[in-house]
Computed example of a mutant assay.
Amino acid sequence: MVVQENIRGIRVVKSFVREEHEKTKFNAVSDEIYQNSTKAEKIVAFNSPLMQGTMYLSILAISYIAARLIVSSSMTTGQLMSFITYTSQILMSLMMLSMVIVMLTISKASAQRIEEVLSEQNSLDPNIDGLKTIADGSITFEHVDFSYFNSEEKRCLYDINLHIESGQTVGILGPTGSAKTTLVQLIPRLYDVLSGSVKVGGVDVRRYNLESLREEVAMVLQKNILFSGTIAENLRWGAEHASDEELVQACRIAQADSFIRAMANGYETHIEQDGSNVSGGQKQRLCIARALLKKPKILILDDSTSAVDTKTDAAIRKAMATELKDTTKIIIAQRVASVEDADQIIMLDDGHIQAVGTHQQLLDSCPRYQELYAAQLRKEEQA
């Protein structure tokens, strides 16, 4: 685990000049593993001579007793040899059995971990026989409470009431930890509500077939993941049988087509593990294009343009407004500029909705929004 963390975060380690610290940590962990492994191997190594010694001592004891019996004519030499042979076979079998027991003991910890994974149950009911057709991308939250611990005392969302019309663009703003991501994760049923209901297309999401629901909801998460393979292969995670023209169209909306074509192999350019050979902004745009290929009724962008410059961000929003008129778009952002053109802007704080309205309405009525807008405006002027 330590090696894996250091390899994945090697740039961070070097930028903070923590090589010596990480070497010390690695040596400490390595020494602990060495000590445990040595202890286990000593037990295994001690087992063999112990069993061999037991076997030879048994044969010596049998030979001594049998010799006295042969002298007294109570046993023949042939009987002695047969007895020694059978005893050796029994002791050899016991020795092999002891080795099996030792190996089972060593593997017990691994077996327990595998069992934990295999026995883990999904708490979400996939509702295989549920509805498979979603009418539109409208979303309604009705008195929604939510807790990751399924506890009223540890709620993350409190009495959320919200309605989003199909095709609208909705922005969500709020400080870190205000449950913005938690709110949108309830739409594709990554989690189920504690109380209340979330409706998509006028129907409670729990009534839909889970796979059908998620097919109509595309999410671009905060942590952007790309897989080893070509750009085209990564994009087709959104639609396995998408044509080349559809790939290009999705990338144009995501403002990714230009930098892809600038690469030597274009859409056949190989992406390294976790997208390490493309920049953060390029990775975000590829992930947006991948989500667009699903042609979903609901598109959720969870702070997915944070590494993109403001000009490109504006171009992505403009292209989506033009090309995705029937798709409900939910944009979680830290910049007011990313959502000021939205049909609705939701201000969240500590799991509560503070205000809902357009950019101008919130400027006129919401002190928290006014404060956020003024602070970001000052930063832009200073820049």
Rank of each mutant, 00 (worst) to 15 (best):
V217T: 11
V220M: 07
Q222I: 02
Q222L: 02
K223F: 06
K223I: 08
N224Y: 09
N224V: 14
L226K: 08
L226Y: 10
L226V: 06
L226Q: 05
L226T: 06
F227Q: 02
S228T: 15
G229H: 14
T230H: 05
I231K: 01
N234G: 07
L235N: 10
R236P: 10
R236S: 08
W237C: 13
W237D: 03
G238L: 01
G238F: 04
E240L: 11
H241Q: 14
H241Y: 10
H241C: 00
A242C: 08
D244S: 11
D244A: 14
E245M: 01
L247G: 02
L247R: 00
V248N: 01
V248P: 01
V248Q: 12
A250I: 01
A250K: 01
A250G: 00
R252V: 10
I253R: 04
A254G: 04
Q255G: 02
A256R: 09
A256C: 11
A256V: 10
D257E: 12
F259H: 11
I260N: 00
I260H: 01
I260V: 13
A262H: 15
A262W: 09
A262G: 13
A264T: 14
N265M: 04
N265I: 00
N265G: 09
Y267D: 06
E268H: 14
T269A: 03
T269F: 04
H270G: 01
H270A: 06
H270V: 15
H270L: 11
H270W: 12
E272K: 14
Q273R: 13
D274L: 10
D274W: 02
G275N: 04
G275K: 02
S276Y: 06
S276H: 05
S276A: 15
S276T: 14
N277T: 04
V278K: 06
G280C: 09
G281E: 07
Q282M: 07
Q282V: 01
Q282G: 02
K283E: 04
Q284F: 00
Q284D: 00
L286G: 05
L286S: 03
C287A: 14
C287I: 01
A289K: 04
R290N: 06
A291E: 09
L292P: 08
L293M: 07
